[in-house]
Simulated scan of single mutants.
Amino acid sequence: MSTSSHLHSPTQRQYKYYEFVMAAFVAVYLCSNLIGPAKAAQVVIPGLGPVTFGAGVLFFPVSYIFGDVLTEVYGYARARRVIWAGFGAMVFASVMAAVVVALPPAPTWTNQPAYEIAFGSTWRIVAASLTAFFCGEFVNSYVLARMKIRSNGRHLWQRTIGSTIFGEGVDSLLFYPLAFWNSGLIPNELLPGIMLAQFITKVGVETLFTPLTYKIVAFLKEAEREDHYDVDTNFTPFSIKV
């Protein structure tokens, strides 16, 4: 078993692909919050009938896949830095979206209502999204790191799916009540069903992507010569130290 925390000083390591994985994680997270939520999609599933869902559900599970890859290869501390990068990027994007929406439109520009629908999320929804993301991603990363130690690095699929169940569970349990409870946008009695459907969909996407996750992890471990085990890691989320 390779424990990079014992073989190398983390601050001295230089990686070929870490920054690219970070950029991909942040890009997917921004897309899931800025592109997907503006559209309610509906597909017909044989045996179930029409199923309505927010289009953001197509993006968001991919961020958990990148989170799994980061923790599995580079360790919790470096995954923590990426989570903070995503959090900061979303705060900035939310502030700028609010500023742009609030700017008075030119008399010749007639698309303000559509722009407000696409980018005019309320601060309650933005705050709920940020809170759920922060807690869910850290739970996902922590569970995967601890499971890796307990399993001695075996059975990657158990770690990726198991950590996603906990992370996505926390995310769904936090986001929907914080964003929509007594809001008048979604009836309270419908929230549990929506939460369950979103949770199942997200975990299902993670499960379907497991073979691809295996390939990415194997490639990065070989290319980076890294397979981090968080034996002596400080798991506080409130740090960016590695």
Rank of each mutant, 00 (worst) to 15 (best):
V82T: 08
A102F: 03
A118L: 12
V101P: 05
A41I: 01
P37D: 10
P107H: 11
P104S: 00
T122D: 04
Y115N: 08
W84P: 08
A93H: 11
W123V: 04
F59R: 02
A102P: 04
P46V: 08
V43K: 10
V26M: 01
A27R: 05
V100Q: 14
V101A: 12
F60T: 08
V99H: 12
P104I: 02
G67T: 01
I35G: 01
R80H: 06
G56E: 07
F60V: 10
G86T: 02
T52Y: 01
P107R: 08
P113E: 02
R78Y: 03
A128W: 04
W123D: 00
A77G: 15
T52V: 05
A102N: 07
F87Q: 03
G36I: 00
A55M: 14
P37R: 05
I65R: 07
R81C: 10
F66M: 09
S32E: 00
V73N: 03
V69F: 14
T122H: 06
I117D: 10
P50R: 05
A41C: 07
A97T: 15
V28G: 08
I35T: 05
R124S: 08
I125N: 03
I45R: 14
L34A: 10
L70G: 12
V57G: 06
P107G: 12
P46S: 12
P104C: 07
V73L: 06
G88Q: 09
V73E: 13
I65Q: 09
Y76L: 09
K39N: 11
R81V: 01
L34Y: 01
I65F: 11
P105D: 13
G36W: 12
Q42H: 06
V100F: 04
G67A: 14
C31V: 09
A38P: 07
A55I: 04
V43F: 05
F119M: 04
N33A: 11
V43N: 11
W109K: 12
A85D: 12
V126N: 07
V99T: 07
G75M: 00
V95E: 06
S121N: 15
E116C: 13
P61N: 03
A97Q: 13
N111S: 09
G75N: 10
F119R: 08
Y64P: 07
I83K: 00
G54L: 13
F119E: 02
R81E: 02
V43L: 09
F92I: 13
G86Y: 02
L70D: 04
A85R: 03
F92C: 14
T122V: 04
R80Y: 06
A93G: 05
L58Q: 11
A128Y: 08
Y74S: 00
P46C: 11
I45Y: 14
V95H: 02
V95R: 00
Q112V: 07
W84N: 09
T110D: 13
A77R: 12
S63L: 12
Y29I: 15
G88M: 13
D68V: 02
Y115L: 03
F87Y: 07
Y115M: 13
K39I: 03
M96F: 14
M90Q: 14
V91D: 00
G54H: 14
T110A: 15
R80V: 03
V73K: 01
F59C: 05
P107I: 09
Q42N: 09
S121D: 14
F53G: 09
A55W: 07
A38F: 02
A85P: 07
A118V: 15
I35K: 03
